[in-house]
């Protein structure tokens, strides 16, 4: 196949001022120079880190209260997760809640940060944190087990308060 010849379109109805083009350049430069003196909002990542608001949906974490996870391994988050990122295996515990997650794994490559897991959880046990730094060089590293997921309740209190206030 041969390339078709492209036709150059020239606007024929330019005004005299436009055709002189120098005033247009002056206009553009004025805008550029004005921007140089306005305050910047660029964050110098990674030297400076973005502190997200409570409404931010960072990586999902499990809430740890009194040294144990709140999660009862009901599997609802796993069922609702549109990306099939969560795997839960329940086990029996002596505690009053009877069930606990023997295994809880989120595949962070699959997770799309939709927050459905947080929304469906009957125990307020899985919530979206403010952590967003997730880069992996190996797919195995993206499998977050309980060791990485459990976070003491004090650290996620802002999110819990946010959820309560928006119920």
């Amino acid at each position: 196949m041969s390339l078709e010849k492209s036709t150059i379109i020239r606007k024929k109805d330019l005004s005299l001022l436009e055709r002189l083009y120098i005033p247009e350049i002056v206009k553009g430069m004025t805008l550029t120079i004005r921007q140089m003196f306005t305050p910047t909002f660029t964050t110098q990542y990674p030297e400076e880190r973005f502190q997200p608001p409570a409404s931010f949906r960072g990586r999902p974490v499990l809430v740890e209260e009194h040294g144990v996870e709140r999660c009862v391994a009901c599997g609802l988050c796993s069922r609702v997760c549109p990306a099939l990122a969560i795997e839960v295996q329940a086990g029996e515990t002596e505690l009053g809640k009877e069930r606990y997650p023997e295994k809880f794994e989120i595949n962070m490559i699959r997770c799309i940060f939709c927050g459905f897991c947080e929304e469906v959880c009957p125990e307020e046990a899985i919530i979206m944190s403010q952590e967003y730094e997730l880069a992996f060089t190996n797919p195995q590293d993206a499998l977050f087990g309980k060791d990485k997921l459990l976070v003491p309740i004090e650290k996620v209190q802002t999110r819990l308060d946010f959820l309560r206030s928006n119920r």
Binding site: G75, R79, A90, G91
Partner: peptide, 9 residues
């Protein structure tokens, strides 16, 4: 079968 799986799985 106790706590082995949820039925929908």
């Amino acid at each position: 079968f106790r706590f082995k799986a949820r039925v929908w799985e």
